[in-house]
């Protein structure tokens, strides 16, 4: 389980997170929705130690991670696989090398099993083995996102953290990515925390939805409950998805 307890974070004069508290249950798909600049991505980055809170506590599987050193964070990062808003593939490596990068460094699989492991992860995200030799620049943006997801899956995380996974994608590619998130979460029994501002996708694929505004959770519930939610911000989001 992931748990945020009264986490606050300020960048200069801007209070981004303001005593933010929520939890993610094992195995669930949680969508965290909000407008741009309200702290969604910052929230996610706290979980992998890319941002440290000013106050409050964060727990992953009962372990307090707020004050871990950089080396102590390695274990948490192996557990929490992050898929960035932009694919963040290493330009100088081909698709295979990108996916195998973490597998080799973290010794996830012995050398003789590496190729099968990497190709299996590509297959999971619906990419054929033939893309393995291509460079990231030769792929469409949507395919790069899938490779990025395969790279994260390759380190066998217990939690998948998605930072706006459908940004810059057309409606068809958006649907494909949402379906991938849903099917992988169920198939691999991983917990997924998805940062998004796409209420349509959240209502269709989430187990639970939280809405964040001004650094705090302002509404939350199952998709069915959210459809009845009266909070103005939620109504705005629902209006957009109607």
């Amino acid at each position: 389980m992931i748990e945020f307890k009264k986490v606050s974070k300020r960048f200069g004069q801007k209070q981004v997170l303001n005593e933010l508290s929520f939890h993610v249950q094992r195995g669930e798909i949680l969508f965290l929705l909000g407008r741009s600049g309200v702290g969604k991505s910052v929230t996610l980055r706290h979980l992998v130690g890319l941002v440290r809170p000013d106050s409050g506590e964060i727990f992953v599987d009962g372990r307090e991670i707020t004050h871990l050193s950089e080396s102590e964070f390695l274990e948490v990062r192996r557990k929490c696989g992050m898929v960035f808003q932009f694919p963040a593939l290493l330009d100088s490596l081909n698709v295979y090398e990108n996916v195998a990068f973490g597998v080799r460094a973290l010794k996830i699989r012995p050398g003789n099993e590496e190729r099968d492991w990497v190709l299996e992860k590509l297959r999971l995200v619906h990419l054929p083995p033939s893309v393995a030799d291509l460079m990231p620049a030769q792929l469409s943006f949507g395919m790069q996102k899938k490779v990025s997801l395969a790279r994260t899956l390759a380190i066998h995380p217990a939690y998948l953290l998605f930072d706006e996974p459908t940004t810059s994608l057309d409606p068809v590619a958006t649907r494909v990515i949402h379906e991938l998130i849903h099917s992988l979460s169920r198939q691999l029994h991983v917990t997924s925390l998805v940062i998004s501002h796409d209420m349509d996708g959240a209502l269709e694929y989430a187990d639970r939805i939280l809405v964040i505004d001004k650094g705090q959770i302002v509404a939350g519930g199952t998709p069915a409950q959210m459809r009845q939610e009266k909070h103005p911000l939620v109504r705005d989001f629902l209006g957009g998805s109607a």
Binding site: R45, V48, G49, L50, L74, E75, R77, R78, C80, G81, M82, F84, Q85, F86, A88, L89, L90, D91, F101, G102, A105, L106, S148, R151, T152, I155
Partner: peptide, 10 residues
């Protein structure tokens, strides 16, 4: 975020 991705891969 390529450098952040490297960090997130442990």
């Amino acid at each position: 975020d390529q450098i952040s991705a490297i960090r997130c891969l442990g």
